[in-house]
Write a protein that binds this DNA or RNA. Structure first.
Length: 203
DNA sequence: GTGAGGATGCACT
DNA sequence: GTGCATCCTCACG
């Protein structure tokens, strides 16, 4: 088991910046999940940005509710919810207080401890799958991602701007046309662990 | 290889 | 009651 170096953990200030910036900056970072005595880690290779009450794809678009109030809170907390009755989504809250925004973690490249036994060759190349692989559920909702011993994010690789691809977000057909067209999905160029939805995987 | 549809729980009109 | 920031299976040919 690898001991983690506390000095590598990302500070709240990292998340308090512009959401697009944070979404790109999270690429290449390492996410660590501790399950009992096991450590499971992966590098973030794909993210999406959901920005504010004016973004019709963002859950906070309709204002503050019990479900979305976490996004109005301080940066660096998790926003985790259940979708389609069976999949959890992992988001990190960004920007200042009372500005609801978050970055969705869409795919990881396994580093250590990922269970490949369950036939899936890529158990972390989609937001629902990575949460299953890391055993992330609503009990981890609203935790401080920089200050707990169950789930946190550390520095790992620096990704150069020219190695970052951008494209349209996925699964938001309910949003306005303008918002659907925003290129707010980011991934690492040529990385085989990015989620593979052919239609949306345009350059 | 491609596309349609089902699974399934919970927040919210 | 409705619909969802998904994924897997099963037809098709």
């Amino acid at each position: 088991m690898i001991l983690s170096d506390k000095s590598q953990i990302l500070e709240p200030a990292f998340y308090e910046r512009d959401t697009i910036l944070v979404a790109k900056a999270l690429l290449g970072k390492k996410i660590i999940r501790k399950i009992k005595n096991n450590i499971v880690t992966g590098m973030i290779v794909e993210t999406e940005a959901y920005v504010g009450e004016t973004d019709s794809a963002c859950h906070a678009f309709k204002g503050k509710t019990k479900r979305t109030e976490i996004m109005f809170g301080e940066a660096g907390r998790t926003y985790i919810y259940l979708i389609y009755g069976m999949y959890h989504m992992l988001n990190i809250v960004t920007e200042r207080k009372n500005f609801p925004a978050a970055v969705l973690i869409r795919a990881l490249e396994p580093i250590e401890g990922i269970d490949f036994v369950n036939k899936s060759k890529h158990p972390t190349n989609g937001p629902g799958k990575l949460c299953r692989a890391l055993q992330i559920d609503k009990t981890l909702n609203e935790i401080k991602i920089y200050e707990n011993n169950l789930l946190w994010i550390e520095k790992y690789r620096e990704i150069e701007e020219y190695n970052i691809c951008e494209g349209k977000r996925i699964g938001i057909s309910y949003a306005s046309i303008e918002d659907q067209d925003r290129k707010w999905r980011f991934w690492i160029k040529n990385n085989p662990h990015v989620s593979t939805y052919k239609k949306n995987n345009l350059k």
